[in-house]
């Protein structure tokens, strides 16, 4: 395959996840940052980051194995 689609998808979610995680941590105690009482930027940012890392790892592994 020309380009493993998991690589750009993984990189996108790594960047967005990192952005949200950092933003969520910095604004944790600011009013309006958690309208529902859940620090959702921080939590969801970490989820996106983890998903992005899994996708990048799968793409790198596939490239190494030549599949």
């Amino acid at each position: 395959m020309k380009l493993d689609v998991r690589m750009p998808i993984g990189l996108f979610f790594v960047l967005v996840g990192a952005l949200l995680t950092v933003y969520g941590a910095v604004t944790l105690h600011e009013p309006g940052a958690s309208p529902t009482g859940v620090p959702i930027d921080l939590v969801w940012g970490a989820v996106l980051l983890a998903f992005g890392i899994v996708m990048v790892t799968l793409a790198r592994r596939a490239r190494r194995l030549g599949v």
Binding site: L20, T36, D41, W44
Partner: peptide
């Protein structure tokens, strides 16, 4: 718009 704070709203 009601439930997402800045950041997640962008997503």
């Amino acid at each position: 718009l009601n439930f997402f704070p800045a950041g997640l709203l962008g997503l």
